[in-house]
Design a protein around this nucleic acid. Structure first.
Length: 437
DNA sequence: TGAAATGTTGGGGCG
DNA sequence: ACGCCCCAACATTTC
């Protein structure tokens, strides 16, 4: 990398790995200086991942290569580093004559701290640090109650969200690609290989960036049936920003309100995480700290492996283990089963999903688990206990999904139920009732 | 974005 | 014809 004396701006990619409709990149390119884009493989985050074949690291690595190629073809470059963000930034700010840093906001507690420290480093040197909304349609201060406090119930939130959407052109694209001629003319950066960071390629197939024809249009009718191709499978791409949320929201607005609602849930949980970072460490509702979880480790292991003896639960867990994906309906069923039938702390399940899901997103995963356990904002009431048998009868009537993932279902090989449904239901009701008074 | 228990209603069988 | 019972089918309440 050539050292330079000419002034540049830096655009910092994080969870927005695309050149199209990228708010921060657009603003950087429209700014007064040539732009050097960078990406940091964050040692703090990567060192906590247990699996050297973690498919998400492979995915990011692949997308970084693609971005570098595209930026190279446009006459620029992507500088890629591996390390702790503060250390990397200290070095960058020494090496380059940086006038301004541009990036897109990230609402996770760790990310907010990291960005505050980097912004402080910049500020010490008189460098501007600009962050933009890109990951969501509306962020923390844009959808509030009359008294300026955040909504904690989804339905009124979504009403105001939709009303707000009509007030202005919030879904308009940022034509970042049109301004790539303002990239700084660097060349030839190296991308650290996976091995040097302690990872290997995984054999996982990543979901397509393009949603197959008809999925969104027919989302409402098909989304609850795990054997159908009824859901978008875009979670991974939303997580890493390899597609634009605005583009998909426009499509949803045009084609299917139920799908739009799912995107609103995503905004909702991002906003909740931003306003209430404590949800990362415990229940949103304090009362639920009192629940006496059984936390049986052997039962937890059976749940993880998909050996509970409840076929719809086992199918879901095996799908997750095999592919890094689980159908949304089945996520609710498996989560309800872990927390309510087995009385295992939802945080154990949250951590397992975090480790396994390709589309893992802290805000949505935490929100979903707190919903299932009844501990969260706008949560399912604690007495709402999914009956695995009737869920199966409703959503996988002919057993197609179950047979796909639990081939030994119906044979002597298949385990007996880990616990009797009626008994577990009563036990759960009593435990919750006792805790909540 | 539940399920089970309990309550109500109305048609049909039957004495 | 009538009252009584049974029991789906649906509605409401409760967890």
């Amino acid at each position: 990398m050539t050292q330079t004396t000419s002034s540049i701006s830096i655009f910092w990619f994080r969870r927005d790995l695309r050149l199209e409709d990228n708010a921060g990149l657009y603003h950087a390119l429209k700014g007064p200086n040539p732009v050097l884009p960078i990406f940091i493989f964050d040692e703090e985050i990567l060192s906590k991942l247990e699996d050297p074949e973690d498919a998400r690291v492979h995915f990011i690595h692949q997308e970084i290569q693609r971005l570098q190629q595209e930026l190279g073809a446009a006459g620029g470059d992507l500088l890629v580093r591996y390390g702790k963000p503060e250390a990397v930034w200290t070095e960058l700010l020494k090496t380059y004559d940086v006038q301004a840093v541009y990036t897109n906001r990230d609402y996770e507690p760790y990310a907010k701290q990291r960005d505050a420290r980097v912004a402080a480093l910049c500020s010490e040197k008189g460098i501007s640090f600009f962050d933009f909304k890109d990951h969501v349609i509306f962020d923390r201060a844009e959808v509030l109650k009359g008294d300026e406090t955040p909504y904690v119930v989804f339905t009124p939130y979504s009403k105001v969200w939709k009303a707000r959407l009509k007030e202005d052109n919030f879904l308009q694209s940022y034509p970042s690609r049109k301004y790539l001629h303002n990239l700084a003319p660097f060349k030839g950066s190296e991308i650290p290989d996976l091995k040097s960071m302690g990872f290997r390629e995984s054999a996982t197939t990543f979901p397509a960036r393009e949603v197959p024809q008809g999925i969104i249009k027919n989302y409402a009718e098909n989304r609850d049936f795990p054997s159908r191709k009824g859901t978008s499978r875009l979670g991974l791409h939303f997580r890493f920003g390899t597609i634009s949320i605005r583009e998909k929201a426009r499509k949803a607005q045009r084609l299917n309100e139920t799908f739009l609602n799912e995107l609103i849930w995503r905004d909702f949980y991002s906003m909740i995480l931003d306003h209430f970072p404590k949800v990362v460490d415990g229940p949103f509702r304090e009362k639920y700290r009192e629940i006496e979880w059984r936390n049986d480790e052997i039962e937890f292991e059976k749940w993880c492996q998909g050996k509970t003896g409840y076929p719809i639960v086992d199918a879901g867990m095996r799908e997750l283990n095999a592919t890094g994906f689980m159908h949304n309906r089945v996520r609710m069923i498996t989560a309800s089963f872990l927390t309510k039938h087995l009385l295992i702390n939802w945080q154990w399940g949250e951590a397992y999903f975090a480790q396994k899901l390709l589309d893992f997103d802290l805000a949505s995963n935490n929100g979903g688990w707190q919903w299932a356990a009844g501990t969260g904002t706008d949560a399912a009431p604690y007495f709402r206990i999914f009956n695995p048998a009737s869920q199966q009868a409703k959503f996988d009537k002919d057993g197609t999904y179950i047979r796909k993932w639990v081939p030994e279902f119906g044979t002597a090989e298949y385990p007996k139920p880990i616990v009797d449904h009626a008994f577990a239901r009563e036990r759960c009701l009593n435990t919750y009732k006792f805790a909540l008074g």
